[in-house]
C-alpha cells in the first residue's frame, strides 16, 4: 500500500484553524495572515504606482480610487496589519533566539510550559493593542473630515 493512500496530514487547514491551541497559535495565525495581506498590498501598491508611467491623468484616476470609503477601509486594514506584524515580529525576533522564554527545569504536574509564559502573552496583547490604536488614529485622520 502506498503511503499517499494513508495520508493524514492537516496541510493548510493546520494554520487556517488557530482555535485549538491557545494565544501563541492565534498569534502565529495572525502573523501569517497579516504577512500574506501585506504581500497582497505590496503587489497592489506596485500596480498603483506603476500607473505613473501612463501619465498624470492615469495617476490621478488611480488616486481617486483610494479616496473612496472602501479605499479608506483597505488603508485602515493595511495600517492594522503592518502595526501588528511589526510589533509581533519584534517579539518573535527575541523569542526565536531563546530570549524571554525562561529556563529549562523540572516540570511539575499539572504542567505549564515555561515557554508559553506571561511575557509571550503580554507581547501578543501589546501588538494587538498597538494595531487597534494605530487603526483608530488612522480612522480619525481618514474619516475625520476637513
Amino acid at each position: 500500500m502506498e503511503a499517499t493512500d494513508r495520508n493524514n496530514r492537516e496541510g493548510l487547514k493546520a494554520w487556517l484553524n488557530p482555535s485549538r491551541y491557545g494565544a501563541e497559535r492565534i498569534s502565529y495565525w495572525l502573523q501569517r495572515l497579516t504577512g500574506v495581506g501585506l504581500l497582497g498590498y505590496f503587489i497592489g501598491h506596485v500596480y498603483e504606482t506603476s500607473s505613473l508611467t501612463q501619465g498624470p491623468d492615469a495617476w490621478a484616476a488611480m488616486l481617486e480610487l483610494t479616496q473612496t470609503p472602501m479605499g479608506h477601509m483597505i488603508l485602515l486594514l493595511v495600517i492594522g496589519m503592518s502595526t501588528f506584524h511589526s510589533a509581533n515580529g519584534i517579539r518573535l525576533i527575541f523569542t526565536e533566539g531563546g530570549k524571554g522564554l525562561g529556563k529549562p527545569g523540572r516540570p511539575d504536574y499539572p504542567y505549564d510550559a515555561v515557554s508559553l509564559n506571561y511575557r509571550q502573552k503580554s507581547g501578543i496583547w501589546i501588538a494587538l493593542i498597538l494595531a487597534a490604536a494605530a487603526m483608530l488614529f488612522g480612522a480619525s485622520v481618514l474619516f475625520g473630515g476637513e
Binding site: 531563546g98 516540570p107 504542567y111 510550559a113 508559553l116
Partner: peptide, 26 residues
C-alpha cells in the same frame, strides 16, 4: 519552526519542545 507553541501546549509530560527548539536556535 515559527514558534506557534502548540507542541508545548499539548505535551502531556511537560517537556516543552518549543523551549528547547528556541534555545537551540538562540
Amino acid at each position: 519552526c515559527h514558534f506557534a507553541g502548540s507542541c508545548s501546549t499539548v505535551c502531556p509530560k511537560g517537556v516543552d519542545p518549543a523551549l528547547g527548539i528556541q534555545l537551540l536556535k538562540g
